[in-house]
Design a binder for these strands. Structure first.
Lengths: 194, 194
DNA sequence: AAATGATGTTAATCTAGATTAACATTTACT
DNA sequence: AGTAAATGTTAATCTAGATTAACATCATTT
């Protein structure tokens, strides 16, 4: 089990003793997925919150017209889950699929209460993580309202230059909330502008 | 200080002893604002997370073109704040303004660490609250991507029937991310359809 | 009651981005 | 290497929603 990246990540938020790290390690699981496999499927109850050790996932949902909408990409040192389904233990409306072979550390819903009970600092850890996620989500709503598609693309490219390399353009278009054709148009405009 | 609604609200998440309730009460402040007053202004560092006892606020930001975008409304038993500014203690990019005379219970950034230290259950409380807020925010992103303006309006009207009565239409349009003229058009369409 | 400002409506015109469809390029498999 | 599948591009046409502007209604103050 490759858990060191998670322990390093946690150190940014709270200090754990060696014993606590060992307890945490005993309570999480490690799993490899192949490209194309699903970590969560729409309709399942989401049992895990997952930390990405390596690889890349997309989180998306399929609307009534069958259109796929990508909500987020998760790469190394990010989280992936349908947090709504996880916290309420009701069927997920999101899918998480691996875009590359992916290694995950998984926090099970059944074990996470034990973890909080044994290591109260983890309650703080997850509060801090979720707070940051909430801020990012709110800022994304703001951007979606106030920026044009072109400016949203430039923001994405600027904020996640490495992710753009790893992912097909049509998925980036879906993440930005536009069609692949329009993203293609934006890119050719940008080339002309330079 | 009217604090009972907050204590009742907290009871939905965690159980506090009387001593803990008293300590919490000693660490928060209570304030009345008049209609039109600002709880937070863009550029200030947000010092408080606020629980609404009565009244109503709008949280919005002003983009580069001077356009106002409403992010949320907060009424009784909701929270209001620029959480991004609060947690990082950097200048707010949001404004919170009272749409009615409003009573708030305010958690100060300086005191909240004392509260967590004295009552670890509050760490859990805020984790749970922030988790719910994150889920709501993600679902809103999904709706904004996948629903038409008309369907977003219907969803809003359905989910917050009481809020709609209290707030001018042009602010609801701003919350939905459309112009007031287009909302007016949607409403007259809906009347014709019946 | 008149006047002022805030809120809401209607209609004409405009535009960012969607849709469709045909084609080009890259990647992966036999 | 050759073929099929996945990904990307271009251009023509279409549409949801924006913009502008004129007018209507409601609330508040004097």
């Amino acid at each position: 089990m490759k858990i060191q990246p998670l322990l390093d990540y946690i150190r940014n938020f709270v200090e754990l003793t060696e014993k606590e790290e060992a307890f945490l390690t005993s309570k999480v699981s490690y799993r490899k997925y192949l490209k194309g496999q699903f970590v969560i499927q729409q309709g399942d109850v989401c049992k895990y919150e997952c930390f990405v050790i390596s690889g890349c996932t997309k989180t998306y949902f399929v609307d009534e017209e069958g259109q796929e909408h990508i909500i987020m990409f998760s790469v190394e040192n990010w989280w992936t889950s349908d947090i709504g389904s996880f916290i309420t233990q009701t069927p997920a409306d999101l899918n998480v699929q691996c875009l590359e072979n992916t290694e995950l550390i998984m926090f099970s819903h059944d074990d996470i209460e034990d973890l909080y009970a044994e290591i109260p600092k983890l309650e703080r850890l997850f509060r801090l993580i979720v707070e940051r996620a909430l801020v990012a989500s709110q800022k994304r709503i703001i951007r979606n309202f106030s920026l044009s598609a072109k400016d949203r693309y430039l923001f994405f490219r600027n904020q996640y230059p490495l992710i753009e390399q790893r992912i097909p353009q049509y998925m980036i278009a879906s993440y930005l909330g536009i069609t692949k054709e329009f993203l293609s148009k934006i890119k050719s405009q940008l080339i002309l502008e330079q």
